[in-house]
Simulated assay, not measured.
Amino acid sequence: MSRWRYVLDRRIAAHHWELSGIDFDNQWLQIRGGMIRIHQGYAWDGCSPALPVPGTRLWLGIPDGPTMENGRPAAWRASLLHDALCQFRHDISGLTQAAATAVLASELRDALAPAWMLCLYPAAVRLLGPQDFPGDGPRLA
């Protein structure tokens, strides 16, 4: 059983103005001119935290939302982009928590996610997600 819920079968690209001015490239992720690309083979666990139930295809934790017309959960793409941004946040100069959260929120809206997800998920990642983004600078105690 894989520890990953999803693996990209093809490259995904999206434009987000919140990422304008960021220039980054590694094996899995490229950001240029507001365009973010995540390469084929990238794996992630969907909405976190979530853990696989041994011997099944079930995961316990934060739901990825209802299955949409495209056959994928509502948060599939939003969790992909947000997870990649968070995973490489220490290497992405200028990335802020607000920008990563805005990408998640925008992708949820574009996916026509239910209203409860549109309110709850961005607030949850803002409060409970990573707090140490390089673009936010040092935090005062």
Results as ranks from 00 to 15, higher is better:
Trp4Pro: 00
Tyr6Pro: 01
Val7Ser: 13
Asp9Glu: 15
Arg11Phe: 09
Ala13Ile: 10
Ala13Leu: 12
Ala14His: 06
His16Ser: 05
His16Phe: 14
Trp17Asp: 11
Ser20Gln: 10
Gly21Ser: 06
Gly21Thr: 07
Gly21Asp: 06
Gly21Gln: 03
Asp25Gly: 02
Asp25Trp: 08
Asn26Cys: 12
Gln27Gly: 02
Gln30Ala: 13
Gln30Cys: 11
Gly33Gln: 11
Gly33Ile: 03
Gly33Glu: 14
Gly34Ala: 08
Gly34Gln: 04
Gly34Asn: 02
Met35Tyr: 11
Ile38Tyr: 11
Ile38Cys: 05
His39Leu: 12
His39Gln: 10
Gln40Phe: 02
Gln40Lys: 14
Gly41Gln: 06
Tyr42Ala: 01
Tyr42Ser: 00
Tyr42Lys: 04
Ala43Asn: 01
Ala43Gly: 08
Ala43Lys: 09
Trp44Phe: 09
Gly46Arg: 04
Gly46Leu: 11
Cys47Ser: 06
Cys47Asp: 03
Ser48Cys: 10
Pro49Gln: 04
Pro49Val: 15
Ala50Tyr: 12
Val53Met: 14
Gly55Pro: 06
Gly55Lys: 03
Gly55Val: 12
Arg57Ala: 10
Leu58Phe: 13
Leu58Asp: 15
Trp59Asp: 01
Leu60Trp: 13
Leu60Arg: 01
Gly61Met: 11
Pro63Cys: 12
Pro66Trp: 10
Pro66Ser: 09
Asn70Gly: 06
Gly71Ala: 11
Gly71Leu: 15
Pro73His: 09
Pro73Leu: 12
Ala74Thr: 08
Ala78Leu: 05
Ala78Phe: 09
Ala78Thr: 04
Asp83Cys: 04
Gln87Leu: 15
Phe88Trp: 15
Phe88Leu: 02
His90Met: 08
His90Trp: 04
Asp91Glu: 13
Asp91Arg: 10
Asp91Trp: 07
Ser93Phe: 06
Gly94Ile: 11
Gly94Cys: 08
Gly94Tyr: 05
Gly94Leu: 07
Gly94Phe: 09
Gln97Phe: 08
Ala98Ser: 09
Ala99Glu: 15
Ala99Tyr: 11
Ala100Glu: 08
Ala100Ile: 13
Ala102Trp: 00
Ala102Ser: 06
Ala102Ile: 03
Leu104Thr: 01
Leu104Pro: 00
Ala105Tyr: 05
Ser106Asn: 01
Arg109Cys: 10
Arg109His: 13
Asp110Gly: 07
Ala111Glu: 05
Ala115Lys: 00
Ala115Gly: 00
Ala115Arg: 01
Trp116Glu: 10
Trp116Phe: 14
Tyr121Phe: 08
Ala124Ser: 08
Val125Gly: 00
Leu127Asn: 01
Gly129Glu: 07
Pro130Lys: 04
Pro130Cys: 10
Pro130Val: 15
Asp132Pro: 00
Phe133Met: 04
Pro134Trp: 12
Pro134Tyr: 07
Gly135Phe: 13
Asp136Thr: 02
Gly137Pro: 08
Pro138Trp: 06
Pro138Val: 06
Pro138Gln: 03
Pro138Thr: 06
Pro138Arg: 05
Arg139Gly: 03
Arg139Phe: 13
Ala141Lys: 05
